[in-house]
Amino acid sequence: MGIKIILNINSKRYSVDIEPWETLNHVIREKIGLTGTKKGCETGGCGSCTVVVDGKAVYSCMMLAFQASGKDILTVEGRDNDVLLAAIRKGFMEMGGLQCGYCTPGFIMSAYALLSMNPKPSREEIKEAFVGNLCRCTGYVKIFESVERASQIISGDKRE
């Protein structure tokens, strides 16, 4: 069978043939070949598949691909000249907000959704924004610090 849909990912248009039951995660990874988006559980339990759809963080393993048709999708690979994404990447690198890197794309996407709505989140707001993302390496501390650093970068603050 299969149906054809258009996906707008990182400001690029992709025309793909999909099955109705295929998840957005599967299509992004296997059909479009953007493997930065991970999958760790396929049950909405780990968040490593998180992408941003129309400005909001969603689990790409819990969204069927056809649901994303026509929507604006951002993955960790990102689009050129995205200042916010660049700041988040820098924050994670400077503060050591990752170890094995497997959960990182999901965290970066959740951070993107958070900071685009709330550029100066409190520690508590950061924690809440990340409840849907599991990390097993870092104990989260440096991830929170990374987002705080990214927040400083976008608001032009100097580092102490």
Partner: peptide, 9 residues
């Protein structure tokens, strides 16, 4: 209900 990724959709 905690994960925003769920509540958003």
């Amino acid at each position: 209900i905690q994960p925003l990724q769920v509540k958003n959709v």
